[in-house]
Nucleic acid binder design. Structure first.
Lengths: 339, 339
DNA sequence: CTGAAAGCGCTTACAG
DNA sequence: CTGAAAGCGCTTACAG
């Protein structure tokens, strides 16, 4: 491979001069510069980023973590959107993306992995991850870092981009109430993850605001699983008959709810309305098409990338927490209450 | 950050000795080794891969190209499967993944990008890409390389993993013929990409084998676009009434076909049967659920990764071309012909 | 405007 | 078994 030394020899100058010409320094004779650039081009020269990075401490590479080390992180249907927006925005700014997949490393600390490969910044998309690594704080102390979607610890003071989950849940709940539903079953995810928690809060607050007295049994936990949501729905609906609507904290759980209702001989939306959360691709193709809360995932990825670019250039220590608005998408799974 | 020098000082030995201890050399006193390893652990030492890579010419990183430089490459719904299987298999073998997203680089040659970042091998997933870069051959001459899904030039002699598109198209066509359909419209992609071409071949051969004399107008080109397929379908079905079945070369085009048939007041599958190709996620949720040819994308990604690992370790120059079998998935969009 | 020298953090013959 | 030295390909003060 061509290197700076060969170019120097061919141009009859020193390596220092070649380096300066290649890096656009001003204090160099136009003629010399031109000659060097020509030779470099002719020889298909590309700088070795490892050698350069060793000195400049910059590799023009951003590390990306999906999920945790044990699973591939591609169980979440959003990842594609996050990923492609990150790829576009960071790519335009001149960065490549490093996906930490190596399972054989000695270290499992995010910070160490980043040091190992010398990334300039980090984006973490730990969707639905309950990892509570003690050392997680070391990472954002050492590298410009942005979290998307969820936080491993709710109290962390870090750059963070999420959907406005509470407002989204409020909208969904309000939608059902305005259709006349007075007793609504909430199939929630869990109470640990911030996003899950906020969706429950939005539901509770909307119920309260509109004078619905939510009972304890109104909120059930479906673990973000289609099967578990179906099981729960069957259990509840065989005991209780009051519910005319279900608000699930994810589309996948909403699918499970509809599976169960169909099995029980209930029609959606004629007998029971169902609303989801996320607006995954399949939501529009489901039968009936699912009313749900759309998350602007591309915008989340873009926002996170822009923040990262800013702090990689000049980290002033300001911590940014962005809530991206959601959008209620009304489709065929919700209708006016018969009662 | 801790480096080998600090450890050497603390352990009271030379950097050479530390390097040997860290890299598991045998010719070192057990006691010395133990001491060095202890100190390294205590100091959270991680090797600097840039410095190491500069000498060993290995970074334990595999470069991945999606689509081409202009689009994000995430338009294809398969990419998630390819990507997650690559991530798993290469991760287990000790590799991280580098996604080339940087748009600001001086070079646009794959080979140069790989040199720049010093990857150990490359996987290319140029789905639906018609790029015919003259220099494309330089890449696999310089780096261990595997292509997945499609080839930029059909005649390239490179490691390549694809679906058995011809056999898949044969199966789909045979399925329709066995349901009694005697005149079948083929909505194809294009004739350039190998996969597209093979799907047309499979269709033609199955028709021939079962004694259907396919006319020229049986094959139309829908450019892998839902809208274009819908437009074509409307055009054809308003002129011709003979067709009782449509075989589209992608699920997305099959969706377009069904869109158009619905608009024309035709029922699927009662009036017209429709079969797709790919088995994207939405296929099962579509209304009616789509009969289609499933591509084993996870297996394709795994196979490609394993080949790459082999040739990164020992490139004997053998070129591998793997065809992964497809699987016909019969759902609700195909039925016995009325005629 | 140009070049010699030091050094980034590591590995690898080689000498002892 | 251990260490001094050279070098991977580059950048950065510094001297001239």
């Amino acid at each position: 491979m061509t290197n700076i030394k060969k170019i120097a020899k061919l141009a009859g100058v020193s390596v220092s001069t070649v380096s300066k010409a290649l890096n656009g320094y001003e204090d160099i004779k136009e003629e010399t510069k031109k000659k060097i650039l020509e030779i470099a081009k002719e020889m298909d020269y590309v700088p070795n980023f490892m050698a350069r990075g060793l000195i400049t401490k910059s590799t023009k590479t951003v590390g990306v973590f999906f999920g945790d080390q044990t699973n591939s992180g591609f169980d979440s249907p959003f990842l594609v959107d996050y990923f492609s927006s990150i790829k576009n925005v960071l790519g335009e700014a001149g960065y490549d993306l490093l996906i930490f997949s190596n399972q054989k490393r000695d270290t499992s600390s995010y910070k160490s992995m980043c040091h190992e490969k010398g990334v300039d910044g980090v984006i973490l998309i730990l969707t639905g991850n309950k990892r509570t690594d003690e050392k997680i704080h070391e990472l954002h102390e050492a590298f410009p870092t942005v979290y998307i979607d969820s936080l491993p610890q709710a109290s962390m003071k870090v750059n963070f981009v999420e959907s406005d989950n509470e407002a989204g849940a409020w909208d969904a709940t309000e939608h059902l109430i305005k259709l006349g539903h007075r007793s609504i079953l909430k199939i929630a995810g869990d109470t640990i993850a911030k996003g899950s928690f906020d969706r429950i809060e939005g539901f509770k607050k909307a119920c309260q605001h509109y004078g619905l007295s939510a009972q304890d049994n109104w909120i059930q936990y479906g673990k973000y699983s289609r099967e578990e949501a179906a099981r729960l729905t069957k259990e509840i609906f065989s005991q209780e008959t009051e519910f005319t609507a279900v608000f699930a904290s994810s589309d996948l759980m909403a699918f499970g709810v509809i599976d169960a209702l169909k099995e029980l001989g209930k029609r959606v939306p004629e007998d029971v309305s169902v609303v989801g959360f996320d607006d995954i691709d399949s939501a529009q193709y489901f039968h009936p098409p699912l009313t749900t809360v759309h998350q602007k995932r591309l915008q989340m990825g873009e926002t996170a990338s822009k923040i990262l670019i800013e702090i990689m250039q000049d980290n002033d220590g300001t911590i940014r927490h962005m809530k991206i608005p959601t959008k209620l998408i009304v489709r065929g799974s919700s209708a006016i209450s018969k009662q």
